[in-house]
Structure formats: structure tokens, C-alpha cells
Write a protein that binds this DNA or RNA. Sequence first.
DNA 1: TTTCCACCTTAGAATTACTCCAAGTTTGGA
DNA 2: TCCAAACTTGGAGTAATTCTAAGGTGGAAA
Lengths: 161, 161
Amino acid sequence: MNEVLVRVSSEAQQREARLLQALRDAGLRLTPQRRAICHYLAHTDAHPTAQQIFAAVKPEFPSLSLATVYNTLDALVRLGAVHALGGAGDGAIHYDADLRPHVNLACLQCHRMVDLPCEAVADLNRRVTAESGYRILGARLVYYGLCPDCQRTAREASPTP
Amino acid sequence: MNEVLVRVSSEAQQREARLLQALRDAGLRLTPQRRAICHYLAHTDAHPTAQQIFAAVKPEFPSLSLATVYNTLDALVRLGAVHALGGAGDGAIHYDADLRPHVNLACLQCHRMVDLPCEAVADLNRRVTAESGYRILGARLVYYGLCPDCQRTAREASPTP
DNA sequence: TTTCCACCTTAGAATTACTCCAAGTTTGGA
DNA sequence: TCCAAACTTGGAGTAATTCTAAGGTGGAAA
């Protein structure tokens, strides 16, 4: 196992510990279902929807209900432990347990969502902090559009730039 | 009528003209329904959902169909003439005809949300467009934190920064 | 360790936002 | 004016999310 993989694994474990601690601190119970949901959220780089989380955790808990997934996600979002990213064009909400400042890119056609590390985000953070008078605790930056692949598809369909 | 109202009205008229021109330029037809939807979008400061637009325009066009609203909004978003803002917590998509760069500031304590005009947003837009390879059609930039009033309240309650 | 109850999970029905479709209507160029 | 392409409409259909009532369980207190 190389250095990068070790570091990534460590980050995921830290994320998982942070999610569980947030639930504990709020006086909420750590049921096996909630632990499994937090584990999956912390260890994925995708930005899964509630349905995808349900499908991923279901094999481990065959009795798992969608309502439990929604309940847990709602709690984590209200505690500020995960970010809810909506409007990817598929009508679903995507969840992101990575709270470090970054831009999310959502494709309105294929509905995939990816991260974009961006130096300009730090600059925006500084300016918003300085100009707003707010004590900034977090940010959700989502850009919507067409990914390179879907732009190519659209151009082939209608050759009007 | 004072100077501010005149200026606001002028901006709304410019927005409306821009929306209609975008449809014309794309070779789409300017039906009365589409004109009414553009008029409402350009003259509201709220970020209405498709349902709200439908309810607002319906009195003028009793035969108006929701499908027409969605069709028109879809065209305007694809043309980049309005921004689609998802994930407001209500599962619906909100539309914004104000393309000027700004961020939303949400206070976690008093739950008020305000706009912050910010030059740095234009810079971020440029960088995201250049670095991502995406065709950007919209964005939702939300910062969470404590507004000045609630910071003062929090300091008085627990004097540990 | 045992008890107990407030909180949690579950299944399925209900709600809501949005999309699809076929038929009738209208726009805007020729 | 004429007409084909584009648009509108109403209703049915799809998918995400929320609600509800009944049974189950985590974890603090005894």
C-alpha cells in the first residue's frame, strides 16, 4: 500500500469519526444502521443520493428502510456534518461528507457530480469573510452545466455553437 | 416615485428584454405565455419555483399548463439566460434571472438569507469555467455562518470564542 | 446486570415535483 | 394569406421524498 492510499484511508476514518461524534454530541443514538450509513458516506468519493446510499447499505442490513436513510441524512445535514447538494437535474439531493472548501460540478445531462479543487475558492472565502461581517462556518459551492462529454454529445446533435 | 425605484424598474426591464432576446436569438417563438413567464421572472426579486411561476402567471392565462412553464424554464436555463438553483431544502428548483455575480449568506441561528454582491464571484466563475471544461449554466453559492447580530448574541451567552 | 421508555426502524401509503405524450392550436416566414 | 414547424395543453406517468402507525432497541438509571 502506498503513501497516498494510506493518507486517503486516514481521511475517510477521520470523516467517519467526525460524523459519529456529531450524532453523539447531539444526543442522538448510534444505531447499527446509522453507523453503516456514516461509514459509507465517509468512505466514498462519489456524492451519493439517498437512494444510492440505501442500495449500498441494504446488503449489510436487508431490513433497512429508505425512511431510516432519509432520517439519518436529515440529522447529519441539520448538524452541519454533511452538505446537501441539490439540483443536479435529476431531482435528487446528493450528499457530501467532505467539508473542506471546494467547488462541486454537477452535469445537468448525465447527473454526475465531481469535485474541483480550486485556488480561487480560498480567495472567495477570504473576501466573503472580510466583506460580509459574518462568522463563516461553512460553504456550499455548486456549479451546474454540461460536462465535456455531454457538450460533445449536444454539439453532434445540433451543430449550432 | 423615487430614484431607487426608477433604477430597479429599469433593471427589471433590461432583464426582461434580455430574456426575450435570448429566446429570439435561439430561433424560439415568442408566445404570449413565454412573454408572461419572462416578465414575471424579470420583475421578481424572489427566486421562484416553477410552481410559483405557474401560480403567478395562471390568472393572466387561465389555460396555462405547467408543462409550458417547465418547457420555457428549461429553454431559458439551457440558453444560460436564467440560473437554476437547486437544493434549497424543499426539493424544488428555484430560478434566478439576476445573472450578476453574488453569493447567498445564510445565518445558522436566525435562518435569514441575504445576498452579498461580490466581485470575487466573477473571478471564481472565470476560473471554474476555464479549469473545469464544463459549460456553466448556473450556480448556487451559499455560505453558512453567524450574522453580526447573532455573533453578538453568542458572545454574550458564552464568553469563550 | 437488568429494566424501561423515549427514540428509532420499518413497510407501505401519500405527497410533491417533474416529465412524457398525443392531439389541437399558433407563430412567423414565404 | 397560407402552411409547416413549433408550441400549448391536460392528463397520465415516474421518481424522490415525507408521513404514519406499529413494533423494536440503545443506553442511562437503578
